[in-house]
Amino acid sequence: MDIEKLKGSPVGELVPISGYDPRFREEYNCFAFVPSPLPDVLNLSAATYAEVVDASAALARADQAASLLPNPVLLARPATRREAVSTSALEGTYAALSDVFEADFLEEDELTGSVSEVRNYVTAAERAYELIEQGHPITVRLLEDLQAQLLKGTPSDGPLAGSVRTTQVFIGVGNRRVESARFVPPPADHRLTEGLRAWETWVRTNALPTVIRVAAAHYQFETLHPFHDGNGRLGRMVAALQFMSAGDLKHPVLNISPWLEQNRAEYQDGLLQVSQTGQWDKWVSFICAAIHAESLEVGARVENLLALRESFQMTLAGAKGVSLRIADDLIGYPMITASLASKLYGVSYQAANTAIAKLVSLGILRQRSKGRYDRIFQCDSVLAALEY
Rank of each mutant, 00 (worst) to 15 (best):
D2H: 11
E4Y: 11
L6A: 07
K7I: 11
S9A: 14
E13L: 01
E13H: 00
L14K: 05
I17T: 06
S18Y: 01
G19L: 09
Y20C: 00
R25A: 13
P35F: 07
L38F: 08
A46P: 10
A46Y: 14
A47L: 14
T48M: 03
Y49T: 08
A50C: 05
A58Q: 05
R61W: 01
L68R: 15
P70Q: 15
V73F: 05
A79K: 02
A84P: 11
V85T: 03
S88Q: 08
S88V: 07
A89W: 02
T93R: 14
S98G: 12
A103S: 14
E108F: 10
L111Q: 00
T112Q: 13
R119W: 10
E126A: 13
A128K: 05
E133D: 13
E133I: 00
Q134M: 10
H136C: 10
I138A: 11
T139S: 15
V140I: 15
L142R: 02
L142Q: 01
Q147Y: 08
A148I: 06
Q149R: 10
G153M: 01
T154S: 15
G158Q: 12
G158K: 13
G162Q: 10
T167I: 15
Q168F: 03
F170P: 03
V173W: 02
G174D: 04
R176T: 13
R176K: 14
R177G: 07
S180M: 06
F183A: 11
F183W: 13
H190P: 07
G195R: 00
L196V: 00
N206C: 14
P209I: 03
P209C: 06
T210Q: 06
T210D: 05
A215F: 01
A216F: 13
L224G: 06
H228P: 03
G230D: 02
G232C: 03
G235F: 12
G235Q: 11
V238N: 01
A239C: 02
A240V: 13
G247R: 11
D248Y: 00
H251N: 09
I256Y: 01
P258N: 04
P258T: 06
Q262C: 01
Q262M: 01
N263F: 03
R264N: 04
R264W: 05
E266D: 09
Y267Q: 09
Q268I: 12
D269W: 09
L271D: 06
Q273W: 12
V274Y: 08
Q276V: 09
G278Q: 14
C288S: 11
A289S: 04
H292A: 05
A293I: 08
E294D: 03
L296E: 15
L296A: 13
L305P: 12
L305R: 07
L306S: 08
L308R: 14
E310M: 12
E310D: 11
S311R: 15
Q313V: 09
M314E: 15
G321H: 11
D328M: 15
D329T: 10
I331K: 09
G332A: 07
Y333A: 06
M335Y: 12
L340P: 02
A341D: 10
S342E: 09
Y345H: 10
S348Q: 05
S348C: 05
A351E: 14
A351Q: 14
A352M: 08
N353F: 10
A355F: 11
A357E: 03
S361D: 12
L365H: 07
L365D: 06
Y373E: 13
V382S: 02
L383M: 03
L383F: 01
L386I: 04
